[in-house]
Design a protein around this nucleic acid. Structure first.
Lengths: 220, 220
DNA sequence: GATAATTTTCAACACTTGTTGAATTCATCA
DNA sequence: TGATGAATTCAACAAGTGTTGAAAATTATC
C-alpha cells in the first residue's frame, strides 16, 4: 500500500466524537451509541478503550485540561518575569484568557468543542464540582495568589467573588449558546473570537479594580 | 373531617418536584419516574396533566418567568420614575438583580430551585436558546434599551457584549455549583444572598462604564 | 342519590439504555 | 508460517426509558 496520511486511530475518533456531543448535549443527553455512530465504530469499542460512560467523559475532559493549564501557567509566569514579579491586573487576567483565545484561533474544531464543554461543566451543579476542582482549581488557586499579591490590601473574599463573576462571564461565552447573537440581532457573534477577549479583559479588570481596590480590608 | 391545611394539589407537587430535579440534573438527567416518586404520585399523572416530558419542562420554566419579569419591569419603571426618566447605571443594574435577590431572600426553596434552573438553561447550548428567547429576551431588550439611553454615545455592540458578561456572572451564581465555596475554602458561600448582589452590582457597573463610556462610538 | 366529568391508578407497550462475553479480525514477531 | 496478544465486531442481556389505553376512584352537577 502506498504511503498516505492514516486516519486517526479509532480511540481518538471516539474521543473527538464524544467531545463534540458532550459539549452539545451534556453528559446525560448523549448515548454511547450516538458517540459510536458519530465516530464510525462499534459501541463495544467504547467500553473496551475507556470503560464505563463516566470514565469516558473524564478522559475527554482531562485530555485538553493539562494542555490548557500549562499554557495558562506559562503565560502567567511570563507576565511575572517581564514585570519583575509585579504583573499588572491586565496582565494577570490576560494570562488567564489569551491562551484560550489562541487555541480558539487555531480553528481546531476540537478545541472549540472542548471549551464549550468546559463551559457546560462549570455551570453544572452536581457534575461539575468535582471535575472542575480536580482539573482546574490548582491552577486557579495560583492565579488567585497572583491577584492577592497584586492587590495586597483587598479583602480576600472580594477577590474570590470577583473571580466568580469573571469565571461566569467567561463560562457563558465559552458555552456558545448563540443567545447574544440572537439578542443583538446578529450584531454580536460569539464566534468572533478576535474581539470578545479584547472586551472581556477591560470589563473584568474594571470590575476587579472597583471591587477590590476601592475598599480597604474589612470594609463592607 | 376537621378543617386543616390541605396538601398542595398533585399537579403542583409534580411541578415542584420537577423544578428541583431539573435544576439539579438538567433535562436529560431526570426521569419521569424520578419526578413522580419525588412528588408521591403515579407516573401516568405527569402525562395526564402536562403531556410529554418536554412540555412539562416548559411549564416548569414558564411558571415563574412571568412573575420574575413583572418584578423586574416594575423595578425598572420605578427607577425611571424616581429619576425623572434618567436612571443611573447602578439603578438599571439593580433593577435587574434586586428582584432576584428578593425572591431568594423569601427562603422559598421553589425560587432557589427555579433560579438554579434558569442558570442551567442559560448555559445550555441546544436547549436554552429558544426557551430563554421566548421567556426572557423581551424584557432583556427593554433593559438594553434603558442602557442605550443611559449611554447614548456608546457603541451598541459593546453594550451587548457587556450584557453578555453580566449575564454570565449572574448565571453562574444562580447555578449554585458550590465551586466558589470550595475554591475559597468556605470563605465565600453562594447561599450568602445578602452580600453577593452588593458585590455583583458594582462589579458589573464598573465593567459597563469601562467598556461603554470610555470609548466613543466606532472606537476599537 | 344517580349521572357525568374529572382525576388517579394499574399494567403494559415498544424502544432505548449501558454494559458484557464470546467470537473474529488484525498486527507483531519468533 | 504460526503463535501471541491486542483491537474490533457481533449478538445479546437486563434494566430503565417515555408513553399510552383502559379501569378504578374521586369529585362535581343536577
Amino acid at each position: 500500500m502506498p504511503d498516505y496520511t492514516p486516519p486517526a486511530p479509532k480511540s481518538e475518533r471516539i474521543l473527538n466524537a464524544a467531545e463534540e456531543l458532550f459539549a452539545l448535549h451534556g453528559f446525560d443527553g448523549v448515548t454511547l451509541r450516538g458517540i459510536a455512530t458519530a465516530a464510525g465504530v462499534d459501541v463495544a469499542l467504547l467500553n473496551y478503550h475507556f470503560g464505563v460512560k463516566k470514565k469516558l467523559f473524564e478522559v475527554v475532559f482531562m485530555r485538553r485540561a493539562e494542555i490548557l493549564n500549562e499554557a495558562r501557567l506559562n503565560a502567567l509566569l511570563e507576565a511575572e518575569a517581564s514585570s519583575g514579579g509585579r504583573p499588572s491586573l491586565e496582565q494577570i487576567v490576560s494570562a488567564f484568557l489569551r491562551p484560550i483565545q489562541r487555541f480558539q484561533l487555531t480553528g481546531d474544531e476540537g478545541w472549540r468543542n472542548y471549551l464549550a464543554l468546559v463551559g457546560w461543566v462549570n455551570s453544572s451543579s452536581v457534575w461539575g464540582e468535582e471535575m472542575m476542582h480536580k482539573s482546574f482549581d490548582p491552577l486557579v488557586a495560583r492565579f488567585i495568589e497572583a491577584l492577592k499579591k497584586n492587590m495586597p490590601d483587598a479583602d480576600p473574599q472580594r477577590i474570590y467573588w470577583a473571580y466568580q463573576f469573571f469565571s461566569g462571564a467567561l463560562t457563558l461565552t465559552l458555552a456558545q449558546t448563540g443567545r447574544i447573537g440572537r439578542l443583538s440581532d446578529g450584531l454580536c457573534r460569539e464566534s468572533d473570537v478576535e474581539t470578545v477577549y479584547d472586551l472581556m479583559i477591560p470589563f473584568v479588570v474594571a470590575g476587579f479594580r472597583k471591587l477590590c481596590m476601592e475598599h480597604p480590608e474589612g470594609g463592607a
